[in-house]
Design a binder for these strands. Structure first.
Length: 227
DNA sequence: GTCCAGGGCCTAC
DNA sequence: GTAGGCCATGGA
């Protein structure tokens, strides 16, 4: 059991090393402030980041990228500003609900929201409508700098192909795999998730899979897409 | 025209 | 508890 754990730790760090050597530091999350990270995390749900950038730019131009300013923005106006990011009615509602919680329970202070142990803050976030596990972990890691590993569809896809996951695991199991085998280092978790996304975008998309020259090819038992 | 992207909620079996 | 539908835009 101990050896098994040590072996997995080594595998995960080996993969991380290869990804980092190939793609370099990703400098995530692309945002000016922690509040902007949260806004982006909600807006990017099932949405290409290029679309989110347009919505964020609109919000910035309207001076609405701060809790107090967002609080006085009419819902219809918020919908209009974030329209390019898609699902704009749902997302406007989610942003409003989150911001209301932040204003009413924490006086608009993220420092106050984050002033608790990791799992307690995570529960607070998951109580919010529209914030599921991936969004919560993104907020915890990239806005709160908590060592909370972010899992996404790419993570499951890539680590299944590497034979580390079976492919049927649920979010909590995948998160636990990384958190139980890596040191609780926010900088490491930050870079690891960002590298997984970068790798997926370039080589391991849903259909278009390019295994030739893949930095993980030597670790991959089944090369899909015929090299 | 079709597929998909840095998900999550709700409803029906 | 889980599969399926829904939400919406823009680039490939």
């Amino acid at each position: 059991m101990v050896d098994e754990t040590a072996a997995m730790q080594e595998r995960l760090m080996e993969i991380f090393g290869r990804l980092l050597a190939t793609y370099g530091h990703r400098h995530w999350w692309p945002a000016e402030t922690p509040f902007e990270v949260i806004v982006g995390a909600i807006l990017t749900q099932n949405t290409a980041w290029s679309n989110v950038e347009k919505a964020i730019a609109n919000l910035a131009a309207a001076g609405a990228l701060a809790p107090a300013a967002l609080a006085v923005l009419p819902l219809a106006e918020l919908e209009r500003l974030i329209q390019p990011s898609g699902y704009f009615r749902q997302k406007a509602q989610r942003l409003h609900l989150f911001n209301r919680m932040l204003m009413e329970r924490h006086g608009g202070s993220l420092r106050s929201l984050f002033d608790a142990p990791l799992e307690r803050v995570r529960e607070r976030l998951l109580e919010q409508k529209g914030i599921g596990p991936e969004t919560a972990d993104s907020i915890l890691l990239y806005a709160g700098h908590f060592p909370s590993f972010v899992v996404d569809a790419y993570t499951l896809r890539i680590f299944s192909r590497l034979g580390i996951l079976a492919g049927a695991e649920r979010y909590p199991e995948v998160r636990a795999l990384f958190m139980n085998h890596l040191p609780p280092d926010p900088a490491l978790f930050n870079e690891y998730h960002a590298l997984i996304v970068e790798h997926a975008k370039i080589r391991c998309r849903k259909r278009q899979v390019r295994c030739g020259g893949c930095p993980l090819a030597a670790l991959c038992p089944q090369r899909i897409g015929g090299i």
